[in-house]
Computed example of a mutant assay.
Amino acid sequence: MGKSVSKLSKDELRSLKNATYFDKRELQQWYKGFLRDCPSGQLLEEEFIKVFKQFFPFGEPLDYCHFLFQAFDVDKSKFIDFKEFILALSITSRGNLEQKLAFSFRMYDFRRNEKIDYKDMLQVNRAIYKMLGNMVTLPDDQNTPELRTKKLFLLLNKDPNHDTINLEEFKQLLMKDPNITNALHNYDGLV
């Protein structure tokens, strides 16, 4: 799907319809819009950042966009094709909690080694805090990315200096921190 074609084939439509929460009409509309914005059929990181910045005018989303772009770019091609775009959009906007958690884990697991250490989580949390800027007031025990990251590790009885978090443990955080559930539902029904 890297080349520009004005319409999705019947096979592509059927495949995407089965893999997403979008119907045929929605997929065709999203594809038309994707090609309008990315005539080559490839969304580069710089373009992704430009679009994303519009949603966070009071913060600096550059670093966050980098991690999010990597999560979308499943095949590590350095661009997002329509299939990667629509699958990620489907999960983030209409997916169930399990799917959203797995997608979030993939963003934190940017090294793709199926585990997150303190430094990895801190990098992503710093990016989130920079993106949000002063838009959100946080409790004292998590008003910095360092405090937030340490709190998440301690919720799992993990030592931030030595331990890592795998996907199953990441899912356990959901039960221990309601802020995660709220964040994962931010885009429900958006599209």
Rank of each mutant, 00 (worst) to 15 (best):
N179F: 12
F67G: 06
S104M: 06
R25T: 15
G189L: 04
Y64H: 05
F153N: 05
G189V: 04
I116K: 07
L27R: 09
K3W: 04
E47F: 02
D117T: 00
Q42T: 01
F58Q: 13
D63A: 11
I86W: 07
R14S: 13
G2S: 15
K150Q: 12
N113D: 13
P39H: 09
K7L: 10
N18W: 05
F105V: 02
R36C: 04
S90V: 12
G133K: 02
F82W: 07
S9V: 03
I180P: 06
L8T: 02
P178F: 01
L173E: 08
L174W: 07
I116G: 06
D120I: 01
E84T: 00
K50Q: 15
G33E: 11
A71Y: 05
L87D: 02
P160G: 03
N113W: 00
S4G: 13
T20S: 05
F153S: 06
S6R: 03
K76R: 15
V124H: 08
N18Q: 14
A71V: 04
P178S: 09
L13H: 04
K115V: 09
G2I: 13
K78V: 06
A71H: 04
G95S: 02
T92N: 05
E114T: 08
A183C: 08
H162G: 01
R112E: 14
G189P: 06
D11M: 09
P57T: 01
E60P: 00
L152E: 02
R112V: 10
R148G: 04
L68M: 13
E47N: 11
T164I: 05
D23I: 08
P178M: 00
M121W: 04
K150F: 05
F48P: 03
L27G: 11
F85H: 10
S6Y: 00
R148I: 03
D177T: 09
N157C: 08
V74S: 14
L87W: 02
Y129G: 01
E168M: 08
F67Q: 04
A88P: 06
G189I: 07
F103H: 13
D120M: 14
K10H: 13
R126T: 08
T144L: 10
S15K: 12
E45Q: 14
V5E: 14
A127D: 01
E46Y: 10
K78S: 14
L97N: 06
D37E: 15
N143A: 05
F105I: 03
R126S: 10
L173Q: 06
N18Y: 08
N134V: 02
L13I: 10
D141P: 01
I49P: 12
N134D: 12
G189N: 05
I165P: 00
I128V: 15
K32G: 06
P61V: 04
N179P: 00
L16C: 05
M121S: 09
S40V: 10
A127L: 01
S9K: 03
D37T: 08
F103Q: 10
V74K: 15
F105T: 02
N157L: 07
K50S: 15
Q70K: 14
N157S: 14
T137D: 10
R112W: 07
K150G: 02
L154F: 06
L62W: 03
K100R: 09
I180W: 03
K53S: 15
R94Q: 00
K158E: 04
V74H: 14
E46W: 09
S93G: 09
F52Y: 15
N161C: 08
A71M: 09
